[in-house]
Design a protein around this nucleic acid. Structure first.
Lengths: 248, 248
DNA sequence: CATCTCCGAAGAACGGTGTTCGTTGCTTAC
DNA sequence: GTAAGCAACGAACACCGTTCTTCGGAGATG
């Protein structure tokens, strides 16, 4: 065929678009797309992860992504599962199941908050990705090893997930709202100061209790709030253990 | 100025748009805007509450809203506070503070879930609206009347709020995803069926615990899950009461 | 009563968003 | 050598929040 004969480099004829000069693009992959999306997430937050933004980062157009990903929703779930793969899972030790469950929850929180507001994707989602299922399996294994009944463990893993998601979102939501130029932490501190001033200016006759404990309401370090709620949940779950035969 | 002379009613010149024939528009109000926004929310969910949609519902353009509302964020917060006004608040009875706290939480959940996914607005937000403050005041008053220390109550009201928001979101998020034509509940049931099938098809050698309790994981009626977690939290908060002097 | 000044209402536009359609051009299988 | 399949892509569609600018009517002022 003459059409496939290796013709020498002719100049592009006049009036004809160059079509495509040199596309030595490394081929697009779902994995590579997710990698890039997470890079954008870590740098600028979940809101910045748009189809166009990811495509631009890959040097292409948004339409090219739809060959490897059904849409934005699937991309976000793939990102979440990739992040979930970073969570270090424990080997169940029945003697220490409460501590292990507490540690695992802290580890989940650590990984989630280290990727901005990725927890927003998890909220209200059934874990179907392989790594998310690994995490759920680990939580359930710990509880079952500790003697928590099936029915309780089934509800508890859901409650725990809700608590983890909500906590991670609350922690990152303020930092994400900071303008792109400024230091997020400094911005957050300024915001807290405004909240304190607002609460102090409230009419004490309408809000007597709130007005009397402004300091206690503001002194809400995210880590402390998390530990408090997590302790409540873990102890509450433990209260459902059927045979309480401790060694001692 | 001749341009401002009150000319008699001339017929509109040919080729000239009528400008505005009879604009007996009832004047736009922040309250009326919020009313309309909530009507859209109840009918089509929070996602449908856009500036354009609300303006269209009012028979005007999106720009007109910005005279009474600083932007979408403020509109959403105003909507939330309006919804919070529907929450019936208890008169504290120190003898029954735990039951009252439980009942108040259930009431909050009832009102929130009755307005689709309005809870998404509350997530990660500091309650500053008057009615939201009323609710916080009521929660704190109950706990303080029950003898919960200030520091604990300050954290607990936040944890409780997180739990309420997350629960309401989880309950409504699936219903909101239903296509506009179909019955949301039927759609949700079909989804649950798919989830069960997916879980049953998981490889048992990788997910032994999950595979062994599919029924317990699926049997998650929203109300039951809520009652379970709420009981955990309320009992946990009560365990911090300093002087446990019950009458009896 | 005439005039001026303000201010709410609104049209148009800007720069973004997710997604779809139709085409192109390469690679592979026949 | 030819045909088919398919990833890549440009363009477009229908939206979004917000801002700019103008317009017109109502109240204040003389």
């Amino acid at each position: 065929m003459a059409t496939t004969r290796p013709e020498p480099e002719l100049p592009t004829p006049p009036g004809r678009k160059p079509r495509r000069t040199a596309p030595p693009r490394q081929p697009l992959t779902q994995e590579f797309i997710v990698d890039t999306a997470i890079r954008v997430l870590d740098a600028e937050g979940l809101e910045a992860v748009t189809m166009r933004r990811v495509a631009q980062e890959l040097g292409t157009g948004p339409a090219s992504l739809y060959a490897h990903v059904s849409g934005k929703e699937e991309l976000r779930e793939l990102m979440l599962d990739r992040v979930a793969a970073e969570i270090r899972l424990p080997v169940p030790d029945p003697e220490r199941w409460q501590e292990q469950l507490h540690e695992l929850a802290s580890e989940i929180r650590r990984v989630f908050t280290s990727h901005r507001d990725i927890a927003m994707v998890s909220m209200g989602m059934v874990p179907t990705g392989p790594h998310l299922l690994d995490v759920a399996e680990a939580q359930l294994a710990l509880m079952r090893a500790g003697g928590v009944p099936k029915e309780i463990a089934g509800i508890a893993v859901d409650t725990l997930g809700m608590f983890l998601d909500a906590g991670a979102i609350e922690d990152t939501i303020h930092l994400t709202k900071a303008p792109p130029g400024a230091d997020p932490w400094e911005y957050f501190q300024k915001y807290i100061g405004e909240v304190r001033a607002y609460f102090n200016a409230l009419p004490p006759d309408r809000y007597p209790v709130v007005s009397g404990m402004v300091d206690e309401l503001i002194a809400m370090d995210g880590e402390q709030r998390f530990e408090f709620g997590l302790g409540l949940l873990v102890r509450g779950i433990a209260s459902y253990v059927e045979d309480e035969e401790r060694p001692g």
